[in-house]
């Protein structure tokens, strides 16, 4: 029995790959579950994409998903940002699937590793930076210096704005990773507690009902957190995309 609560986050190689410079191409359990998440999304939306006027169940699901993300992009960034809709959609459903798949027994939660979430979030913010410069040229740097301030204030505001810009990807990745990891550790600890109480025998055996209830509650909470964190990640992507289109806000 694995009774180390951190054991579930261990990376195990499945197929050894060659070392390409600094990149280790070993196929691990993390990569496997990422692939499963991606294929899960592809299969779901492959089935859900219909062209019937009166949608069936799956097509309704697809349409609800589309509208959910489309409204999110339109409300937070504006209709001109619909160019980025596929990106936000992909990010949201990848994270949602990774989080929810991680809730299954024996599954590996890819989003509980900082490396994965950091790659996602640095890509998002990097894309905002590049697209902002492509779209606005050097005017993009005005997001670091809001207009209409006394000259002296810029010495204070510009570093503050730069720090908060750099903090974005860090906050984005830490939030997702910490939420997923903390939840899974908590679950495991509670579950181990059940086994421990039962192994003590006697009166303690009856007391095991308390952690059983606790674990059940945490499972429900974790499902909420899994969906919520995907939502937060997607909506923050939209908020950051705002800077591409509205340089002076």
């Amino acid at each position: 029995m694995a009774n180390d609560p951190m054991k579930q986050f261990e990376i195990a190689p499945i197929v050894e790959g060659p070392q390409l410079g600094p990149i280790d191409t070993t196929f691990t359990n993390s990569s496997l579950w990422m692939f499963i998440a991606v294929f899960g999304v592809i299969i779901l939306f492959g089935l859900a994409t219909g062209r019937k006027l009166i949608p069936g169940r799956l097509q309704s699901l697809g349409e609800i998903c589309y509208e959910f993300i489309a409204d999110m992009v339109k409300d937070t960034t504006g209709p001109e940002a619909m160019k980025f809709f596929p990106f936000v959609f992909t990010i949201f459903f990848f994270i949602l699937f990774a989080n929810l798949l991680g809730m299954n027994p024996w599954a590996f939660t890819t989003t509980s590793h900082l490396a994965v979430t950091a790659a996602l979030s640095f890509f998002v913010v990097g894309m905002v930076f590049v697209m902002g410069i492509v779209k606005n040229g050097l005017r993009f740097f005005k997001i670091f210096a809001p207009s209409g301030l006394p000259f002296i204030m810029y010495f204070l505001i510009v570093p503050i704005e730069i720090i908060s810009f750099i903090a974005r990807p860090v906050a984005l990745s830490v939030r997702l990773f910490a939420n997923m990891m903390a939840g899974h550790v908590m679950l495991k600890v509670f579950a181990i507690f059940i086994a421990w109480l039962i192994s003590l025998g006697g009166v303690y055996w009856a007391a095991a009902i308390v952690p059983v209830i606790g674990t059940t509650a945490i499972v429900a909470l974790e499902f909420l957190v899994a969906a919520l964190q995907a939502f937060v990640f997607a909506i923050l992507t939209c908020v950051y995309l705002n800077d591409v289109y509205h340089v002076d806000h």
């Binding site: 908060s164 750099i166 903090a167 906050a171 939030r175 910490a178 919520l228 964190q229 937060v232 923050l236």
Partner: peptide, 16 residues
């Protein structure tokens, strides 16, 4: 979601 955003952003900005 908002609560999560505020708490992490506050801490992470200081760290950065």
């Amino acid at each position: 979601g908002m609560a999560w955003r505020i708490s992490t952003e506050l801490v992470v900005a200081v760290l950065v």
